[in-house]
Design a protein around this nucleic acid. Structure first.
Length: 338
DNA sequence: TCTGGGGTCCTAGGACCC
DNA sequence: TCTGGGGTCCTAGGACCC
């Protein structure tokens, strides 16, 4: 639940700040153990991965034995609990691990798939959240078995082509996706921030967009990526969420360019309400730095060099030592220069 | 001090091209 | 010249996942 709600319900609760560096290190260690079992490891988040153990069985035994081995190693070497789901498909393995939590081991044998799957509520299906569950409930579909048996035309009309087909495939126990051990290719890079209090002040909003753009630019350059589409996300005090985007002629990884577009989009949007959240994202990523067209905008050219220099300084001395001057000033004491 | 943020995918309409 | 279909790209919004 949202933190605000938790605090209201439980004022005496202690809130701990996340420690992403520690989580990343633990993740790396856990993934390394997976890698000892099989090279066929597909990480799906910081704390989960799919393993295809078909090729590991001759060496390590049947999948259930491999699952025990993984749990034992993670517990003794890292002092972490972990839950393993063993099943013939990715979706079923994911479901088994969800239902095996905490610190469990749940096996769904190939000949027991529908027995396991069909009694579950529709929310168990990947892609069914609050809204879709409500749509299905109104159609009288409560269990996975109901979805499997529903006329496909009914589902298509209610959910659209892709979702309907996807859900009926999963409900039938079909999931042909193989475990993909290659590197994940990001399709967008973005960041967003929720204000502690809703903000109306244009200068605060502008500087926030600059800070977000600066972060996105640095992340793009660190990843060796650039993108053609700049998108902003604006959440108003009443929780209405708006998005605007613009596609450029050339991909960019330059924060100044990202910010210029983001600010233009925001100004054109001119939301009449206080702002709760701002986000900046760059989409349409392509590998490699931009080959710049010098003639188009000489003033913009040069920013990339400056930003690459700040990347180097930040890497040596920390992210806080360098950045746009306008981000150093208090909101009440700014000037309009960047 | 305060207390989500980082992503993916799908849909639908419009523009444009063949 | 007119009509229409199909494909692609862009944009905005929404749902969902971890």
């Amino acid at each position: 639940m949202p933190g605000v709600q938790a605090r209201r319900l439980c004022p005496q609760a202690v809130f701990l700040a996340p420690d992403m560096a520690a989580y990343a290190e633990a993740s790396r260690a856990v993934m390394a153990i997976f890698g000892d079992v099989t090279p066929m490891v597909e990480p799906i988040s910081i704390d989960e991965a799919f393993l295809d153990v078909a090729g590991a069985q001759r060496l390590l035994g049947p999948p259930t034995e491999i699952a025990r081995l993984i749990k034992r190693r993670v517990a003794t070497e890292l002092r972490l609990p972990c839950t393993v789901g063993v099943a013939p498909t990715k979706f079923l393995a994911k479901l088994a691990s969800t239902r095996g939590k905490p610190d469990g081991l749940l096996v769904v044998p190939a000949d027991g798939v529908l027995e396991f799957l069909h009694p579950l509520p529709v929310e168990a299906l990947w892609g069914v959240g609050e809204k879709t569950a409500e749509v299905l409930r109104r159609l009288g579909l409560r269990t996975v078995a109901d979805v499997a048996a529903a006329p496909s035309g009914l589902l298509r009309r209610a959910l659209g082509e892709a979702s309907a087909r996807h859900l009926q495939e999963l409900a039938a126990g079909h999931d042909p996706r193989p475990v993909f051990a290659g590197a994940r290719v990001e399709k967008s890079i973005g960041t967003e921030t929720t204000f502690a209090e809703d903000v109306a002040d244009a200068d605060t909003l502008r500087r926030t967009l600059l800070a977000l753009s600066t972060k996105v630019g640095a992340r793009l350059r660190a990843a060796g990526q650039s993108g053609r589409t700049v998108a902003i996300k604006v959440r108003l005090a009443d929780f209405t969420t708006l998005s605007r985007s613009r596609t450029l002629g050339e991909p960019t990884d330059v924060a100044r360019e990202i910010f210029a577009v983001a600010w233009a989009l925001f100004e054109a949007l001119a939301p009449g309400d206080k702002i709760r959240l701002l986000g900046v994202r760059v989409e349409g990523l392509a590998a490699g730095a931009t080959a710049h067209q010098l003639a188009l905008d000489e003033r913009t050219h040069g920013w990339r060099d400056a930003e690459v220099a700040t990347d180097a300084a930040a890497a040596r001395f920390g992210e806080r030592v360098i950045g746009p001057a306008s981000l150093l000033r208090a909101p009440a004491n700014h000037d309009k220069q960047e």
